[in-house]
Structures are given as C-alpha cells and as structure tokens.
C-alpha cells in the first residue's frame, strides 16, 4: 500500500466523516440521523486504521455500533416526528450556533497549523497491540481499575435514574422534590403556581395546583 493510496483513502474517509456528521443534524428521520452518525464514526475508525492504530480503529466499529443502536432507540422514543414524515424544525438560535461552530473549527485548526510537531516514526509497528496490553497491565493498571469503578458508578446511576420501579416500589411514589427556596412550599418544582406548564409538553405535568405534598402519590 504505497503512500498515495493511503492519502486518497484518507481523503475519502475524511470527507465522508464530515459529510455524515453534517447530515446528522439536517435529516428529518431520526433513524437516518443516528445511523449517519454511525457512518461518521465508521469513517473515523477507518482513518484510525490508516494511522496504524489498528486495534482502536476496529474496536471503534464495534463500540460505536452498539452505542448508535442504543442511541437510535432513545432518539425514536424521545424525539417528536421520529420518522421524519414532517420536516424537522427543532432548531433555536441557528446563527449563534453556526458562528460558534465556525469559530471553534478555526480555533482548533489554528492550533493544528501553528504547532510545529516534529513527526516521529513508530518504533515497533508490529507490537503496538502488545505494547498497549503491557501498558494496561503495567503502569496504566491504575487507569483500568479507576475505569472499572467509574463504570460501576455509571451502571448504578443509570439504573437508579431510568428504572421505573426498584426494589422499594415505583421510583416516583412518595418522593417529593425539595423546594427551591427552603421552607417555601410554593417553590417546589412540579407545582405549577403560575399554571404556565412546560413549553412543549402537551398537557399538564403531574397534578397541578397548590397541593404539592401528595404530588407524587397519584403517579
């Protein structure tokens, strides 16, 4: 694989990654948006393989496949008009966003151009995976164990937040959100004092009116 072929492949993958990344935010169908993000990840994975980080590239295929499947489930569940049957208009402050996006690209690009990084060839390209293994089992063992603890915390947190009912019955029965101003009951979230309701939800949240105390009871 001579250098020119690598450059051509890199160009194709880079353009594809950026184009799919842009498509994510402009398509109407949420399933198409999620799987164009997956396509963007697959192209970045391919670039990592071209960068001789072979294990990371192929592992990204695997990891992002799972992550995008889960994301597709949540996109379809929590986005209005999930299949894009009507054109999608869920955008606010578009100009500000474009300006900030361009500025950040220019900023990071400037860093890339300004920094004079002296390129060093990889010492032992054959042993990169073995070196990573020794690193993880050796001096970076602490990283692995901390990651383990973080993952346990993530699992417990995710289950606590999302499971409808746990060992002690439904998650929202009996629990009443604390008042924002301590001691002042009217500032308890979920109590619609002004009756102004959430912007986009279609009917009132749980029991409106001042009777905040048994708020969770009728869930």
């Amino acid at each position: 694989m001579t250098g020119t072929w690598v450059d051509i492949a890199f160009g194709v993958f880079a353009v594809a990654a950026a184009w799919f990344g842009w498509r994510v935010f402009v398509t109407d169908s949420m399933v198409r948006a999620t799987f164009s993000l997956l396509a963007s990840f697959l192209n970045v994975g391919a670039i990592l393989v071209l960068l001789l980080a072979e294990y990371l590239g192929v592992a990204m295929f695997f990891m992002m496949g799972v992550e995008m499947t889960v994301m597709a489930i949540y996109m379809v569940a929590f986005m209005m008009n999930p299949a894009g049957l009507n054109p999608m208009q869920m955008v606010h402050q578009p100009r500000v966003a474009v300006v900030v996006g361009v500025l950040s690209t220019a900023g990071f690009g400037a860093v890339a151009l300004a920094a004079d990084l002296d390129t060093v060839a990889i010492v032992d390209p054959d042993g990169t995976i073995r070196a990573l293994g020794h690193e993880l089992m050796g001096s970076s063992m602490l990283v692995m164990q901390v990651v383990g603890v973080t993952l346990v915390a993530t699992m417990v947190g995710a289950v606590v937040l999302s499971a409808a009912s746990g060992r002690f019955g439904p998650a929202d029965v009996g629990s009443v959100p604390p008042a924002i101003v301590p001691g002042d009951d009217t500032t308890r979230p979920g109590v619609d004092v002004g009756g102004d309701g959430g912007g986009h939800d279609h009917d009132h949240g749980h029991g409106g009116g001042a009777h905040g105390h048994d708020d969770g009871g009728d869930a």
Partner: peptide, 27 residues
C-alpha cells in the same frame, strides 16, 4: 489480520443494526 476477533465482533454488532433497519423500514 491481527485483530480478527474484534472484526468478527463488530460484524455481529453491525448485523444487529441491519436487522433493526429491516424491521424499521417497511413502516
């Protein structure tokens, strides 16, 4: 390739995506 089992694993994951799309597409 040196990462054969990772390639087979990602083939399996992306096949799961294909089956989900086959169920989603007909509406």
């Amino acid at each position: 390739v040196r990462t054969g089992i990772v390639v087979l694993g990602s083939a399996e994951v992306l096949a799961m995506v294909a089956v989900f799309l086959h169920g989603w597409a007909p509406n």
